[in-house]
């Protein structure tokens, strides 16, 4: 039933992007997202597309996994396009009743949709090449300076990674509960809404009971190991910048300069 679920989006394969420090990937993705809002003309979009294409190729992740993220925002993309096409004033190409389709409208719509695609695919590359735990660790290190302002950065990162760790466990549990209740005659294939809602109870009650039990057990296990969030905790795989990480920063810097230069020239 749920046998094909994998955690998050991570695609396990060995590539240069997979080996990069998560901090580099987070920062570079952020810079790329900013760059997407800086481009205005054809050349800029071409540069952004080219950069994305190169990243997809060196990530070694199959293209269909990249597209997957776009499915989720398909409706938003269509809505953005439609609104922009009809509401932007300018040279009228076609009039349908009170609605005018303008040349400027089409241009803006294409631009907006492209931006959305870049944003989603850019972050997809990061998610596909980094395990959730490395990602949270990277975020923790990036936001570490905020601890000066009494922000519990480590605790928040810890909570996120525990929550992420629980997802596959709960999915597995959900699968078993559904099976156990199917054996007792619950028809999960029934499409009727009232039946489906009624079927939720015998699944959700055991799931919640088990989630609370597991949370309690984990708390006791952490307590027993004298876990304490603050202080000078060290990681088992501490993040250290390597040569390739510096090169990655250099590459993104060159890319950003290019985008800015293109913006000034044209």
């Amino acid at each position: 039933m749920l046998r094909d679920i994998t955690l998050g989006q991570f695609y396990p394969i060995d590539s240069i992007l997979h080996r990069l420090d998560p901090r580099v990937k987070i920062i570079c993705t952020f810079i790329y997202m900013i760059s997407v809002f800086l481009v205005r003309d054809v050349w800029g979009y071409l540069a952004a597309t080219l950069f994305l294409a190169i990243m997809i190729i060196i990530s070694k992740v199959p293209f269909k996994y990249m597209i997957r993220g776009l499915k989720g925002i398909l409706m938003i993309m269509i809505l953005t396009a439609v609104i922009n096409v009809f509401t932007t004033p300018g040279k009228v190409l076609l009039s349908i009743g009170v609605i005018d389709i303008t040349l400027e409208g089409i241009k803006v719509a294409v631009r907006m949709v492209l931006r959305l695609i870049f944003l989603v695919m850019g972050s997809s590359i990061m998610m596909l090449t980094t395990t959730p735990s490395r990602l949270t660790y990277g975020l923790e290190r990036i936001f570490k300076p905020l601890e000066r302002f009494n922000l519990p950065v480590h605790e928040i990162a810890m909570m996120i990674s525990i929550a992420l760790g629980f997802i596959p466990i709960l999915v597995d549990e959900l699968d078993k509960i559904i099976k156990a209740q199917s054996v007792r005659g619950v028809d999960f294939n029934n499409r009727k809404l009232s039946v489906r809602i009624k079927n939720m109870i015998p699944v959700l009650v055991p799931l919640f009971v088990s989630a609370f039990r597991r949370a309690g057990d984990l708390a006791v296990a952490m307590e027993a190991r004298c876990y304490h969030g603050g202080g000078k905790r060290t990681g088992i795989n501490p993040l250290r910048y390597d040569r390739r990480d510096h090169i990655a920063y250099l590459v993104i810097f060159i890319y950003l300069s290019m985008i800015i230069v293109i913006g000034i020239i044209f």
């Binding site: 156990a180 054996v183 055991p206």
Partner: peptide
């Protein structure tokens, strides 16, 4: 299929998965 449910029973390892 629903008829099969009454004929073949299966008890899983953890009773917690079915009690609600």
């Amino acid at each position: 299929f629903s008829g099969l449910r009454g004929k073949m029973g299966l008890m899983f390892q953890y009773p917690e998965y079915q009690l609600f």
